[in-house]
Amino acid sequence: MKKYESFPVSPVEKKRRRKRERQAALITSPYLLWMIIFTLIPMIFVVYYAFTDATGAFTINNVKGLLGLEKETQNVIQSGTFIRLDFVKIFWRSMWYGAVATVVCLLIAYPVAYFVSQMRENRQQIIITLVMLPMWMNFILRTYALMKMLEDTGIINTAFTKLGLPVIHMINTPFAVILGMVYNFLPYMVLPIYSVMSKMDYSLIEAAQDLGCNRMRVFTKVILPLSMGGVVSGITMVFVPSVSTFYISQKLGGGTNEMIGDVIERTFLTETNYNVGAAISLVLMILIFICMAVMNRFSEDESQGGSIIV
């Protein structure tokens, strides 16, 4: 772009460019208008509701209540019967479950992506289609199917009883919730890693081998750094829906493993307390953005480190 600007520009060309910019802005404007009304303004609404009370007056009690700084939130005073939730604990649990599910997905998906990228070309396409196929079924159906399997009277435990083994209680445990996340979002981790690996320049790996790297070093010095981009976008694609889920934790966690998504859903739809709900959503959003920023920072460092070595 700098090169483009450094040329001396004739007034005619300048006029032409200005016209071009005007045209570009004109055809983008319907989209821009749409996004301002239906994306930006709703975000402003979230912030507005988060910092006001039911009467519309400014307050920071909603956010304070979440952080445990305020003993009683507006919410409790109004509904009376509502049991005060330990929001910090629920936030922490959501982040923790999401992180564990993401790591498990990464550990399972990375070898899958690698093995697939080593296959013959036409076979790669078939396998990747098979990885994607469950994704095209609604996640509610998938979660429901998993729930039915894990139940005490489900097919696994029925088989165990038939074999004379004791029933293993799996449903409504943290294990079931994390399993549900891994099951639902595993393809989101496989696809970006695979797409980076399939485009990887194989001659780099050969070069490393020729220069005397063993398998392990080829992996840590060549394959892993080159696939970092896919790993980072995979982590984002699994972590964000995992942390913010509400259906998976309801169905597989019972009432005991409540996550932040459940609280948001309940606060908005059952209690219709938009102010507290908006405050929780805002905090969730900020927490996720912080996580993503840290992630991106990390991956940038990684690639910069790589370029310095080269």
């Binding site: 239906f38 303004i41 709703p42 975000m43 609404f45 979230v46 509701y49 964000v240 829906p241 942390v243 913010s244 509400f246 998504g261 948001i264 859903e265 908005f268 938009y274 709900g277 908006a278 959503s281 969730l284 959003m285 996720i288």
Partner: peptide
């Protein structure tokens, strides 16, 4: 944005 936040923000609008 997580879907749930997009959802509730539009609902507010």
């Amino acid at each position: 944005n997580p879907d749930i936040v997009t959802g509730i923000s539009m609902m507010l609008l």
